[in-house]
Each structure stands twice: as structure tokens, then as C-alpha cells.
């Protein structure tokens, strides 16, 4: 095997709960050396997918492998995969040090790794305090320490920034980027689009357990966002005519404003000048990643509130 970190391979992964597919024939790969965002609305199947990857739940069909092997076959799993699960997974009565100590012992890792990861996450000073007294941010750091214990090539992080303060969010974001820069495979789930936009290099988007998109973050934004130009002018009708002649579409926004699609603002300014039309405002608007995501997953949101009643 080469020196690069293991690749995660998910193929045709399916998990049903009471006959309903939580994860539905999901296939994708996660490459090392970059942060891969796993994006989807709440209830899309992100956590279930991560539990399937960790062998905590058995798939009904398909498989998830790390470096070509199912997680359950790993002899020293924490040396290969470090995971941060969304739910609480530390005994509140045990100290941070002892939580990491038993984990290290179970993997036959040296005791000094415990001190190393405690220092890495900045919990060295509170190592002997009970984990139950930790703040949310400290608890998250302890989970990160546990994930880093075996110096794994693969990191699976389920909603790591949930509930953290801005400093905590920033810290996790920097850490993920850094781990990816070190050549590791970093897979992080989130329902926060904007968070993923600044953290992830690559996106895997799911809705209702199905794959919606699998592409670089930049391409995802470019492909899915549409821009339009808002023009305010006392002579919007004349301008609209000129725009139509150029093959673009327009849409009335108000008596003195139109939205134009299919032409950029430079060309619209030229047309206005040639037609001697006064333009009071010329503004390019790009739909945000949030909008893109909402549009893509509109019919995928599991528990969307009903906004309109079906007519009989």
C-alpha cells in the first residue's frame, strides 16, 4: 500500500428503519488530502451513514469500507479511523485522562499518546477533572482528542461545530483543514451550508438518504447558483426590449425595476448607453449557497412544514 491515507468507499449502501430507507443506495468515495463535507438537511441520513461506516449499525445492503476493508475487520480500528459522533459518548463520572487511557489500552497504544492528544486539544490542565463537568466546547475537544488518539489517517466527524461558540467553530475549522493538509482523509457532516462552504474542499450532498451531488465545493456553487441583474430605470420598458433583442429574459420587479437573466451587467450598461436610457441602479445578484441547497433539497426535506394544502 502507498503512503497516502486510506480512501473511504461507500457503495450501494442501504439502511431501512421499519421499512423506510434512511440511507438509500448511497455510493461515493472520500479521498485523502482534502476536507470532504457531508451535507444534508436534518434527517437526511448523515448520522446513519456515519454509523454504518463505523460498523455501529449493519447495512441492509451495500458496504462501506476504509482502505478497502469493512470497519468491523480492522484489528486496531482507532489507528485507522478516528470518529467524533454527534451524541454524547463519554461517562460523566470519569476524568478526561481516564477516558482516553482506557481507549488507548484497548488499542495497545502507549500511555504517552493520552498526554499528547490532551495537549493537542488544550485540555492538559483539566485532564483529571470529571468529564461530566465539562462545557460543551470542552466535551467536543475531548471527543476530538479521542478521535486523534491513534493518529488515524481517516477522520469521521459528525456535526463537530454544533453548539460551539465562534472561537470553538474557528478552532475545529482550522484543525480540519490542517489534518487534510497533513494528507489525511477528513469527512465531516453538517447541515450548515455556509459552514461547509468555508471548510470543505469537496461536497457530498444527500437528501432523504439519496445522493444529490458529489463535486468540488467551488463547482457546486458555480453550477447551482444563478446570477441575475437588477436594473432600476424610469424607462424599463425600452430597456427590456433591447435586452430581449439580445436573447435574454426579463422579469418585472416594480414599475421602475426589472430583473434580467442571461446578460451580464457590463453588456446591460452598454445597451443602456446605446439606447440613451438613464440607469439609476445596476446590481448583480448571485443566489447564496444556502439558496442552492434549499432548492436542491426542497422535496427531500423529510419533515418539511406544509405551507399549502392540496386542493381537492
Amino acid at each position: 500500500m502507498s503512503d497516502s491515507a486510506p480512501v473511504i468507499q461507500v457503495s450501494q449502501l442501504t439502511k431501512r428503519y421499519r421499512g423506510k430507507a434512511a440511507v438509500d443506495s448511497l455510493s461515493f468515495t472520500v479521498q485523502p488530502g482534502r476536507v470532504t463535507g457531508f451535507l444534508g438537511p436534518n434527517g437526511a441520513g448523515k448520522s446513519t451513514t456515519m454509523q454504518l461506516m463505523l460498523g455501529l449499525t449493519r447495512p441492509d445492503e451495500g458496504s462501506a469500507t476504509v482502505g478497502g476493508r469493512p470497519y468491523r475487520e480492522l484489528v486496531q480500528p482507532l489507528r485507522t479511523v478516528g470518529a467524533l459522533l454527534e451524541a454524547r459518548s463519554v461517562h460523566p463520572g470519569r476524568s478526561a485522562y481516564h477516558h482516553l487511557l482506557w481507549l488507548a489500552q484497548s488499542q495497545r497504544l502507549p500511555r504517552r499518546r493520552v498526554d499528547e492528544v490532551l495537549d493537542l486539544v488544550g485540555l492538559g490542565d483539566v485532564a483529571h477533572q470529571r468529564a461530566g463537568g465539562f462545557s460543551l466546547g470542552m466535551g467536543q475537544r475531548l471527543d476530538i482528542a479521542a478521535a486523534m488518539l491513534g493518529d488515524p489517517g481517516v477522520l469521521l466527524l459528525d456535526e463537530p461545530v454544533n453548539g460551539l461558540d465562534p472561537a470553538g467553530v474557528r478552532w475545529i475549522r482550522d484543525l480540519m483543514k490542517r489534518l487534510a493538509a497533513e494528507g489525511r482523509t477528513v469527512f465531516v457532516s453538517s447541515h450548515l451550508v455556509n459552514e461547509m462552504a468555508v471548510t470543505a474542499d469537496h461536497l457530498i450532498v444527500i437528501g432523504r438518504g439519496k445522493l444529490i451531488a458529489d463535486c468540488p465545493t467551488v463547482a457546486f456553487v458555480a453550477d447551482n447558483s444563478e446570477s441575475s441583474v437588477l436594473v432600476r430605470s424610469p424607462e424599463v420598458h425600452r430597456l427590456a426590449q433591447l435586452v430581449v433583442d439580445e436573447g435574454a429574459q426579463w422579469q418585472r420587479e416594480s414599475a421602475t425595476a426589472v430583473r434580467i437573466r442571461g446578460l451580464d451587467s457590463d453588456r446591460i450598461a452598454e445597451l443602456a448607453l446605446l439606447g440613451r436610457i438613464v440607469v439609476q441602479e445596476l446590481r448583480t445578484e448571485t443566489s447564496s449557497l444556502e439558496d442552492v441547497f434549499m432548492r436542491l433539497t426542497e422535496d427531500q426535506v423529510e419533515y418539511a412544514g406544509k405551507t399549502k394544502e392540496a386542493t381537492p
Binding site: 500500500m1 503512503d3 489507528r79 495497545r108 488544550g122 492538559g124 490542565d125 478552532w171 494528507g183 489525511r184
Partner: peptide, 28 residues
């Protein structure tokens, strides 16, 4: 609480586990 400054620490390349590392046993 002290926190590692991520900008200051040098980025080192991740190395895969040494295959000769001891494997965990039941006593572990």
C-alpha cells in the same frame, strides 16, 4: 485553558501506521 495555536505548529505529513506495531491482545 490553553489551546494549541494551529497557525504556529508546523504541518507534518501524516504517515501510515508501521505494520510492525504491536497489535492489541485480549489482555489489553
Amino acid at each position: 485553558m490553553t489551546t494549541m495555536n494551529l497557525e504556529q505548529a508546523p504541518v507534518r505529513t501524516w504517515l501510515p501506521p508501521d505494520p510492525t506495531d504491536p497489535r492489541p491482545r485480549f489482555v489489553d
